[in-house]
Design a protein around this nucleic acid. Structure first.
Lengths: 116, 116
DNA sequence: TTTACTCATTACGCTACCGTTTCAAAATAA
DNA sequence: TTATTTTGAAACGGTAGCGTAATGAGTAAA
């Protein structure tokens, strides 16, 4: 059976995860950056700048900048595509995987503690 | 019974709502701003700058700036406290309530469509 | 081989946010 | 009254994001 949330549950879940990320956030990512990060970690590779830009309906410089920032934090890395050296392949990292896993844990925990 | 999400469900939910907010987001709010907005709309009033700053573990100028930005978009408004005119009471608006309601709808919809 | 196209990135000017410090107004204490 | 505390906002310099436009490298087409 599908997961049915009441409006108050949905908003409380969103709220509490947001607050947790703000309160304890060592890294301060934006919605755009998190969207890009999760696309990289949840969707099938390979990922390119162009592909991510299209998927999120943003321009390519937005992707480049987000990859710069997240790369600085070790959450993703980049590598030229050897088949077509115009392309850049975005790669997952151990650190990024841990970050995503931790985010998942927070969401699950907050969902578990939601009032009925 | 509590709402139990698998890790993949939690992350997919978060991802899809994020992407939806990025793709169709007329207004581009940060995690901090959304946290503040939802605190205002979900927690019991009255809300003050000081109270919000403590709740989110940020400094007061962060709150002031976020209220400026969200106020410009009509999502919140401010009013001096007549009982203690040092305080500013943050007020909800119709537009803000609609925004929050729409966010709740997106979350519920994405949760409903989650694979089992 | 020259031309056109497609990548990602950089450059540019601008806006928004950051943390810290300073401030003015208001309330409270002495 | 005067001094102290508390409140929210403004000032400051710095960083990072934005959209648009240009750039350079690589590929494909003529």
């Amino acid at each position: 059976m599908a997961i049915e949330l009441r409006a108050s549950q949905a908003l409380n879940l969103w709220h509490q995860v947001n607050v947790e990320m703000v309160r304890d956030g060592d890294i301060d990512l934006s919605y755009r950056q998190v969207s890009i990060l999760l696309t990289i970690y949840l969707d099938m590779p390979p990922h390119t700048v162009r592909g991510l830009a299209e998927h999120l309906n943003v321009t390519k410089p937005v992707i480049t900048r987000a990859l710069d920032t997240m790369g600085k934090h070790g959450l993703v890395s980049r590598k030229r595509d050897d088949k077509d050296r115009r392309n850049v392949i975005i790669l997952r990292t151990v650190e990024g995987a841990l970050y995503v896993e931790k985010l998942g844990d927070i969401i699950r925990e907050k969902a578990r503690l939601l009032p009925l």
